[in-house]
């Protein structure tokens, strides 16, 4: 790109105009270069994100039957979606999940990040890696592991309960399924969020701590009054990720389906429902509409979360 910016001025022209024209062409060149540089991203973005989204949107306006072909139905699929009790129940369920699981997970992630950052830990690398490892465990392995842990006839908790003469815990029953899934999600993502928060903590200037110490603040006070406010943007980021993750919940219930098929069923979460609509019921158009409504809900919730946190920030 340097060649475009160092093009020699034309000698034939008067100096003033040359300088003028040169600057203008330089700007033009730079602008062209800018577009060229972002072009690969935009091409892929258009092909992989915008086009499929537009196509899904288009699909959601039709209804294709197994017999009788395809017909334009306008917003009928959307009307059906908001009236569909299976979908609405799924939404409420992931909403409950969000309220139950996310505060716990982020609090734990923050705590781990602060402890790691305090520098009072031996084997820091090892601890950091250990907390992060579940994120890297393939879901097949996780399924086998949780299947064993939650097993109602032979799992370790069942054995413990047997030994104590208590009734075995029904981790896979209707009532306990949501907490059981929340537990798996927490286990998987606590390390991931911790890494984000920890990285943010590392970039807080150390002289702030020094100043605080001079003012007589202890570690806890420093953490609460300096570190946490300093990494607020990172906390907000993890919170937004968690909103998206909760409402899009799919992998874990799919995994639990193998253990308790009749508890999970086909519409435990909206995403699972959309998947089953598309691939089991062959109702692709309706699945697309459900996905769009879900996307809209995620957008609204994320926006509300962001707005409320900004408002809090503005407060003195």
């Amino acid at each position: 790109m340097s060649s475009t910016t160092t093009a020699p001025p034309s000698a034939a022209r008067p100096p003033v105009t040359a300088a003028h024209g040169n600057r203008r062409s330089l700007q033009r060149h730079e602008r062209t270069a800018g577009y060229l540089l972002v072009a690969p991203f935009f091409l892929i973005f258009l092909a992989m994100i915008v086009a499929p989204l537009a196509y899904s949107g288009y699909l959601s306006l039709f209804r294709e039957q197994l017999l009788g072909g395809n017909a334009f139905v306008g917003l009928e699929n959307y009307v059906d979606a908001v009236r569909d009790s299976a979908f609405v129940e799924g939404l409420l369920r992931v909403g409950r999940f969000f309220l139950l699981q996310v505060p716990l997970m982020l609090a734990a992630a923050l705590l781990f990040a602060l402890v790691l950052d305090s520098g009072r830990l031996r084997l820091k690398r090892f601890v950091r890696l250990s907390i992060f490892v579940p994120y890297a465990v393939p879901s097949v392995i996780a399924a086998i592991m949780w299947g064993y842990l939650y097993g109602p006839d032979f799992g370790p908790f069942t054995q413990l309960a047997d030994a104590l003469g208590l009734p075995p815990p029904r981790f896979l029953s209707d009532q306990w399924m949501l907490p059981s899934i929340a537990n798996i999600v927490t286990w998987t993502f606590v390390g991931y969020n911790m890494i984000i928060l920890y990285a943010a903590l590392r970039s807080v200037p150390a002289d702030l701590y020094e100043a605080a110490r001079l003012d007589g603040a202890g570690e806890v006070r420093i953490a609460w009054s300096i570190k946490v406010p300093a990494i607020r943007p990172a906390l907000l980021l993890t919170l937004i990720f968690s909103v998206i993750g909760s409402f899009q919940l799919f992998n874990e219930p799919k995994l639990m389906y193998n253990l308790a098929p009749n508890v999970i069923g086909t519409s435990y979460t909206p995403n699972l429902y959309a998947f089953n609509l598309a691939f089991v019921n062959q109702e692709i158009n309706y699945a697309a509409a459900i996905a769009f409504v879900l996307g809209f809900v995620v957008m609204v919730v994320s926006y509300v979360v962001q707005l409320s946190s900004q408002r809090r920030e503005r407060r003195p």
Binding site: P261, N262, V263, G265, N281, Q282
Partner: peptide, 21 residues
């Protein structure tokens, strides 16, 4: 039926669920 996927999935939601419960 030409849509046994649905028939089976629906079974698990109805009769199957009743069996499990």
């Amino acid at each position: 039926l030409p849509f046994m996927d649905y028939v089976y999935s629906s079974f698990s939601e109805t009769v199957g669920k009743a069996i499990a419960d």
